[in-house]
Design a protein around this nucleic acid. Structure first.
Lengths: 235, 235
DNA sequence: CGTCAACAAACTTTCGAAAGTTTGTGTTGC
DNA sequence: GCAACACAAACTTTCGAAAGTTTGTTGACG
């Protein structure tokens, strides 16, 4: 018997890898995903690739049209605005529920994630004004930990899916190393404090601001140098 | 060339039919969906059925575990509570956006759908205390029309998906013909009036109550006669 | 009598080639 | 030169059988 690579099934394996490649920026938004290429890249068959793509399409990371194949979801300013509104509403709601219902274990894990985030250097050692991979990871982990206390799986999953899409935008935006006058560290701490103090409304409000600020930065930033690859991509 | 049956692609066709069969109650919640059966029933191949199921699984209408196939999503009281909370929050949000941003076309279609709903008999001609198919359809159409003004596709789609899951619960609950002291017609009219008056907050509040009431009914109703098939189904 | 192992049946997963579409190219007619 | 058409290439979709898992059964052993 041949051990499956990633998960317990071949389809799942290619799904994971494909997803990681999109989220990790190794596949450009708007890029067409042809089966011959995919099959070679992931050492899989058409069927498996197809199923993985179907799953990703439902998740919103990939788009498709009948008889015209699949492609990485394209980025656009309009969509970013939509996404941000959705995140502001849904994430703040989920955080509120999380703060209200999270148990001690949730609390401690949130604190731990925040601790790690604060101690992780923002910019990497090599690249000057690009966020370090470690920070990006720690940042995502912190936000996920905050939300994880929400007992409603449906809402939680929606929020996490939205976050992931937002990560795509963050990844493909220009280096936002020099943010004007913004105290990101303070914002994160503020959310943590409100959450630990079990002040659900305050935590939710602070998260709203946090998300809106970040998005605003991406939008203006992209307006200056429109390097969102979607516009220049296929078609 | 052989014209495809439903949509433009065979996979899509089986997806549509399968989905309709689940939503229409022709497939029982919890029921296992075996490929041999599916292939015969929908005159399709394993691959197509598999892809359709993958899509439905992502939508939440079907559940799966590796190497153990697919089954219609099981119903449970706990899940109904989760679903209801999610609906109350998301649907009211979407309605608020819809009221704020809906144009005249939206307004007129909502009025039209409401008009149709009010004039459709609640109970069918044959079955005494079961909702008529026509009323169920008109009811769903009315609520969809209300939400349709929301310009944020992401949120709108989420709300619609949640509604669909809720329809499953409604379908599989006992006949709720004799509701104690509830004015459903009045509730619907109230939401419409608030929406037309462009009072977003009032409309959202009324919708919250409407959803919560219906769910409450389902829960108590199911407590009395626990005929949710999930409990007695497979496994 | 209950437990465990080996076996068999039924189903799920995987694959790759055949069939069907779309897209791009070159050619003809005007 | 330009438009329409036909042809070819590349890709997407579909299929069904082979391979791999799980589930249920039978029989032997403690």
């Amino acid at each position: 018997m041949v051990r499956q690579s990633g998960g317990t099934t071949r389809t799942d394996g290619t799904y994971q890898r494909l997803r990681a490649d999109i989220l990790g920026g190794r596949l450009v938004p708007g890029q067409r995903l042809k089966f011959p290429e995919l099959c070679e890249r992931y050492e899989t068959s058409v069927g498996a690739a197809r199923e993985a793509l179907t799953k990703l399409a439902a998740e919103g990371l990939v788009s498709t049209q009948a008889h015209q194949g699949y492609s990485v979801v394209p980025l656009s300013h309009e969509d970013l605005a939509d996404l941000t509104l959705a995140r502001v509403e849904v994430e703040s709601l989920v955080l509120r529920l999380s703060v209200q219902h999270g148990d001690m274990r949730w609390e401690s894990q949130a604190v731990a994630a925040h601790h790690l985030l604060e101690r992780t250097p923002v910019i990497g050692p090599d690249d000057p004004d690009r966020l370090s991979d470690q920070w990006v990871e720690a940042h995502a982990a912190y936000h996920v930990a905050l939300l994880a206390g929400c007992p409603n799986r449906r809402l939680l999953d929606t929020a996490l899916a939205l976050r992931e899409e937002a990560e795509l935008y963050r990844h493909w935006s220009v280096s936002l190393g020099h943010e004007p006058d913004r105290d990101v560290v303070g914002e994160h701490r503020g959310i943590r404090d409100a959450a630990i103090a079990r002040d659900a409304d305050l935590a939710a409000d602070r998260l709203r601001d946090h998300i809106a600020h970040t998005a605003q930065l991406l939008i203006t930033c992209a307006d200056d140098k429109p390097n969102l690859p979607a516009d220049s991509a296929t078609r």
